[in-house]
Design a protein around this nucleic acid. Structure first.
Lengths: 136, 136
DNA sequence: ATCCTACGATAGACAAAGTTCAAGTCAAGA
DNA sequence: TCTTGACTTGAACTTTGTCTATCGTAGGAT
């Protein structure tokens, strides 16, 4: 994710220790942390980091398109750093574990013109639900 | 939705004025109210109804499969009474209006076995996003 | 290398959405 | 009509997120 840090600096981001730590916490695939979880992990490295800063930084990363928000359970939003690889989510109804998945074809084409009601449709968000092997 | 009332009574529901009013507020298609909106409308007919009762009743209706929860914006959950007619949602990114839509085919088949990671997948929830004619 | 200053961080108050609980009320069967 | 357990109430509480005034500092200017 050092990629991300250089990309952000290139966009005029002022680099602070707080922002660096938040970006590092979000490193990797299949990461779907809530804001509080990001804060907890960031605080392990930088104990004095505040909740407000974590929220601010996450919000900026979303605006920059580096991270996407995912709401799978109507509770806290989760932050998914895998924003440059379009994907959907598969969630276990029992334990809540989340997997990134890739449906066949372009999900947007599944919606016929007659069902678009004049909307200009640009995005699809799909959540598949079921029971994971561990819970079965 | 008097159907609903008789169905519920048949399932042993104790019929109270509060529950009746909540069920009546949720009558109709293309209804996507938040719990607070349900409470506000219910309170027009039954001023002393409490928030807790509205939450309890909505939760029971969801458990009974009569209503589904929809989260389109990461804010309050919305309650969709159209649970017996499988459908998905199309949301305007500007004004937030929600339309029920029906994609072609069974959305579950869009996820190849290789992408299921051993899950038993039973549900799909799709949110299409775009700009509605009024906002364009 | 040091200084400036605007941008970022902080703590704490605030707000929105939802849950819990003890006490009171009432639907429906006897 | 009586009884009883299921239902409702309101207030306090929790969780998640936002706002604001103040303080600190990254990074360009000197």
């Amino acid at each position: 994710m050092s990629d991300l840090l250089t990309r952000l600096r290139g966009r005029g981001w002022r680099m602070t220790s707080q922002r660096r730590v938040v970006a590092e916490v979000l490193d990797g695939d299949h990461v779907h942390l809530t804001a509080d979880e990001v804060h907890a992990r960031a605080a392990q490295r930088l104990p004095e980091i505040s909740r407000a800063t974590v929220y601010n930084t996450l919000g900026e990363l979303v605006l920059l398109g580096e991270v996407t928000e995912v709401t799978t359970d109507g509770r806290a939003k989760r932050y998914d750093p895998n924003a440059h690889h379009p994907h959907q989510h598969l969630v276990c109804s029992r334990c809540g574990i989340i997997r990134d998945v890739h449906p066949a074809g372009d999900p947007l084409t599944g919606l016929p013109a007659a069902e678009r009601f004049g909307f200009t449709v640009t995005e699809v968000e799909i959540t598949y639900r079921g029971v994971c092997p561990a819970c079965a």
